[in-house]
């Protein structure tokens, strides 16, 4: 196990370099951020040259990348073009997005698993069919439609919630956006749990337990549920990283000043230090989540052993 972890950690290094390089090239390929700073005016060449020098834009791309990475390892994520250190932006944005993603995960656990267990135990009954249809509908409607419609109906028309989230982004404000963000994954969790329960319901150990005369409730909770949740737990683990990056749309609709919001702003304004910095962190989160899930999977399922 230890050797496996070390090998995986070593493998992370080239992946990390590759991904950040890819993003770096993409972001810088968008164009020259200096143009945008001058608004409708053609950039004055002298000032533009000074700005390019300040942000290392006058150097070849590979050197820019090396310089940038060098700085990152000393904890310096550079300065956004509006003069704010990127690390400061991160300190504001990441807690908000983590909060949003965690709320979404909690919804997935509470609603998704409950529905999944319910339908898995009652396969083929009306409740199973209706939930199944519902999950399909949820999956097929894009998040931005649910988000905007929800914002209009619940936020504006009926006035139950504030339609936008304040800069503080408190937990109660994030409840509805969190639900919107969770919806699609929630539908997947429901389906995953349902299938898993149904499958394990026919497994030998369950039949044995039932044959032993254990109460139905005890069989369901102690034996069936615990084993059926293995794939669900691993799914949720990976989903945390997905949700953080995928919050782009939700954060835009509800004006949540998190990672997606800053990234979107950064891309629109070609604030390359912001974009590359945020993506670098996201990539680390993603890669680590991957590793943790693989390990978790081995821990949960004794049939898998890592050499």
């Amino acid at each position: 196990m230890g050797r496996y972890v070390i090998r995986r950690l070593l493998q992370m290094i080239p992946v990390f370099i590759g991904t950040t390089l890819l993003i770096f090239v993409m972001v810088y390929a968008i164009g020259d951020p200096v143009n945008a700073m001058f608004g409708d005016r053609a950039p004055d060449p002298a000032t533009a040259a000074q700005l390019r020098e300040e942000f290392d834009l006058d150097k070849p791309l590979w050197l820019q990348y090396v310089l940038y990475m060098g700085k990152i390892f000393t904890g310096d994520f550079g300065t956004a073009f509006n003069g704010q250190p990127v690390i400061e932006l991160m300190a504001n944005a990441f807690p908000i997005t983590v909060r949003l993603a965690v709320i979404a995960i909690i919804f997935e656990i509470l609603i998704g698993i409950t529905l999944g267990v319910l339908t898995g135990l009652r396969r083929g009954r009306p409740i199973d069919t209706s939930v199944l249809v519902l999950t399909l509908v949820v999956i097929s409607v894009p998040t931005f439609v649910t988000g905007t419609l929800g914002q209009y109906l619940i936020g504006v028309k009926w006035g139950w919630i504030a339609p936008a989230v304040s800069p503080a982004a408190t937990v109660d404000e994030l409840l509805f956006p969190g639900l919107v963000l969770a919806l699609v994954s929630l539908a997947y969790v429901t389906r995953l749990t349902r299938t898993s329960i149904a499958e394990n319901g026919r497994a030998d150990y369950v039949r044995t337990a039932v044959a032993k005369g254990l109460p139905r409730r005890r069989v369901t909770v102690r034996h069936l549920l615990r084993n059926s949740l293995i794939p669900v737990v691993t799914f949720l683990g990976t989903d945390l990283g997905n949700l953080m990056a995928g919050a782009l749309v939700t954060e835009r609709i509800f004006n949540i000043q998190g990672v997606g919001f800053q990234l979107f702003q950064g891309i629109v304004r070609q604030n390359s230090p912001t974009v590359v910095g945020f993506v670098t962190i996201l990539v680390i989160v993603f890669i680590v989540a991957n590793l943790v899930v693989d390990l978790l999977y081995a821990v949960l399922d004794p049939r898998i052993r890592y050499a």
Binding site: V102, I105, I106, L300
Partner: peptide, 29 residues
């Protein structure tokens, strides 16, 4: 059942993590 106890443990851990993260938000409001 060894595997099963671990599931409980990890679900609990996720929950705890959630509470901690959610708690972070309260202060800034």
């Amino acid at each position: 059942m060894r595997g099963a106890t671990r599931v409980t443990w990890s679900v609990g851990a996720v929950g705890a993590l959630a509470l901690v993260a959610a708690g972070c938000g309260g202060g800034g409001g």
